[in-house]
Design a protein around this nucleic acid. Structure first.
Length: 590
RNA sequence: GCGCCCUUAGCUCAACUGGAUAGAGCACCCGCCUUCUAAGCGGGCGGUUGCAGGUUCGAGUCCUGCAGGGCGCGCCA
């Protein structure tokens, strides 16, 4: 299905071709001046430069060739040579009708679907998720849905951090604190057998408490750090005591993670972790050595990735540490190999904090050197940080890191408050009210994040995000619910949608906005930029709201009523699709 | 020190990859509910796009320099 921009680009392109000029000059975009036109082409300006002619003259010749097009109500030249196009109401109505009849709400699919893997989330075993994981989850989930909707075959992978130094630190800390567990670990490591039941006593809260202490000690105390590294290497060697205790860490973490992700409406197809590629590492190291990529350096084994012409000095990829353990770059590289051997993605999107840009550059270069990926196939889609109102990375009032679960509950509480303030949902059963509050909270958090371009940092301001007024998630839910309510009423009154006709300005604007969905999606897709979808959802809501205020629906005469009802239905379908692509679910009532 | 990113209305952010008069929301002011959810709609106020040059018909967008802010720079992830 082609949108109006595409249809008109073809027509204008043909007109340019008729003058012996390149077809691509006909590229049409939405008008910058809605008061003058629906669409515009700037091709004459570009052409004038190439062929050395007056742009207005060229534009006039193109316009002449377009004059007979029955879909166009007017073709005008303006300014230095803009070609302004206005559609007939009939052509607009036909497009709106096609969108209303389309289960995809007018969105196209890519011509060549790819296998795409989205790597996001990145929670760590033994550490509760904190606000830092929020953006990865929100943006990654949206990108996954967007790519899938465009027709690609997409897998989302949570990619646990479960195999590094922090595991060694924690095993050390837990055994220090609990002699009984230390005894069992030692016995198992020595090849003996022991009852591991006491491991069950280790809770996520314990790990949560011990990790910061251990990490701090590791920084300050060289001996402590070296022991943790040795334990890490031992774990990676599958020494039974370390390995079984580690499994307990993984289990207690998994439960909490699933709960947090579920609350956010985030799902993964793969729950793979660093440990899943452990078996690949030794052969991979051998292979890298055989290819002559590996170098010994200060007791470690590295791959140098610097290139001529680099503006900065990139560090090498550290493959094996001086203690013999795998580093995160090692598992990242092995994961690339693992994916190549299984899903064989044509594109991998790493949705990870922008601060890790250098790290990914190093890993990607190493992957290309090793022949595990082609140049450009691995793509780091970075994002900025979420800051507090002081402009610095978000912290609690006490200065600590806020757990994700706490943030979600905070937002949910705020949502309940807002609903009560507005006197909404009070006649609903308690469980439905809770469900609505949950959806409002998720919509508030996600829309606040996704309305900004991912690369920029933004300020976390709960009061603003949860407001029902203005450009917020709750506002969008309200709009969707309002349409649902309208459609329910039509249903009970036995009113059916019918053929769409366009007459009023508000109807025109709504139809044009519905048509712009495809442009927003392709931009979001090409630039890994969900904010284009968020922007569209908001514009659609506004256009509908204007229409809703200006054009009575159920009170209108039957033909108009049927048309407007169809427009309302098309709006709801597209709005829900757009929100779904942002990972936002819509309640039926509020 | 080297490198990357950022600086747009009082505040929070957009701007379809170089196009017309730089747009939204919040805040503030003025209108609109006996009619489909007013959590809404309409109107107004608000700008030397950090500063200085350059490229061209045309720059928030590209190039150079400067100022301010953030981040990264091998055995954490």
């Amino acid at each position: 299905m082609t949108d109006l921009k595409g249809v008109l680009s073809e027509a204008v392109g043909a007109a340019f071709a008729g003058l012996g000029l390149p077809t691509d000059l006909g590229r049409v975009t939405a008008s910058n001046r809605p008061d003058l036109a629906d669409f515009q082409s700037n091709g004459a300006l570009a052409a004038a430069k190439r062929v050395g002619r007056n742009p207005r003259e060229l534009a006039a010749e193109v316009a002449e060739r377009l004059a007979a097009d029955p879909r166009l109500a007017s073709v005008e030249i303006a300014g230095p040579g803009f070609i302004n196009l206005k559609l007939t109401d009939g052509a607009l109505a036909a497009r709106a009708q096609a969108i209303a009849d389309d289960p995809r709400s007018g969105a196209a699919t890519v011509s060549q679907p790819r296998r795409v893997l989205v790597d996001y989330g990145g929670p760590n075993v033994a550490k509760p998720m904190h606000v830092g994981h929020l953006r990865a989850s929100i943006i990654g989930e949206s990108i996954k849905r967007l790519y899938r909707f465009r027709g690609d075959e997409v897998l989302g992978d949570a990619h646990f951090g479960d195999w590094g130094y922090q595991m060694g630190l924690l095993i050390g800390a837990v055994t220090d604190e609990n002699p009984k567990i230390a005894e069992i670990v030692e016995a198992l490591n020595a090849g003996g057998s022991a009852d591991t039941a006491p491991f069950e006593a280790v809770t996520l809260a314990d790990l949560d408490r011990l990790y910061p202490e251990a990490a701090a000690k590791g920084k300050a105390d060289t001996a402590y750090r070296d022991r943790a590294r040795k334990i890490t290497a031992g774990l990676q060697d599958r020494q039974p005591g370390y390995f079984q205790l580690w499994q307990r860490f993984r289990d207690v973490t998994q439960v909490a993670l699933e709960r947090d992700f579920h609350a956010l409406g985030v799902d993964f197809d793969l729950w793979k972790g660093e440990s899943d590629v452990e078996d690949l590492i030794d052969p991979m190291v051998d292979e890298l050595a055989a290819k002559g990529l590996l170098e010994d350096d200060q007791g470690a084994r590295i791959v140098r990735v610097a290139r001529d012409g680099d503006k900065r000095e990139l560090p090498p990829l550290l493959v094996v540490s001086s203690e013999g353990s795998a580093m995160y770059g090692t598992t990242d590289l092995a994961t690339i190999l693992d994916r190549k051997n299984s899903f064989d993605p044509q594109l991998v999107i790493y949705c990870v904090d922008q601060r890790q840009a250098d790290h990914f550059e190093v890993v990607f270069r190493a992957a290309v050197l090793a022949g595990y990926a082609a140049e450009g196939q691995l793509n780091h889609v970075g994002f900025g940080t979420m800051n507090g109102t002081d402009g610095k990375p978000f912290k609690t009032r006490e200065g600590g890191v806020l757990k994700l679960a706490d943030m979600i509950e905070m937002t949910r509480e705020k949502a309940r408050e807002r609903l009560h303030e507005a006197g909404l949902g009070e006649d609903l059963p308690a469980d439905e009210f809770e469900e609505i509050a949950g959806k409002v909270a998720v919509a508030a958090l996600k829309f606040a994040d996704l309305q900004n371009f991912r690369g920029t940092s933004y300020v976390f301001d709960l009061d603003r995000f949860t407001s029902f007024e203005g450009k917020t998630g709750p506002y969008l839910l309200y709009q969707a619910v309002r349409v649902k309510s309208l459609l329910r009423r039509a249903e009970t009154e036995g009113v059916k949608p019918g053929p769409i006709a366009i007459a009023e300005p508000a109807e025109r604007e709504l139809a044009l906005t519905l048509d712009a969905f495809e442009t927003a999606l392709s931009e979001a897709y090409d630039r890994y930029a969900p904010n284009a979808v968020a922007e569209h959802a908001y514009r659609l809501s506004q256009a509908f709201s204007k229409f809703y205020a200006a054009c009575p629906i159920l009170q209108a005469e039957p033909a108009v009523r049927a048309s407007r009802l169809a427009l309302a239905g098309a709006t709801l379908a597209q709005l829900q699709t757009a929100l779904d692509l942002l990972g936002i679910a819509t309640p039926d009532r509020m």
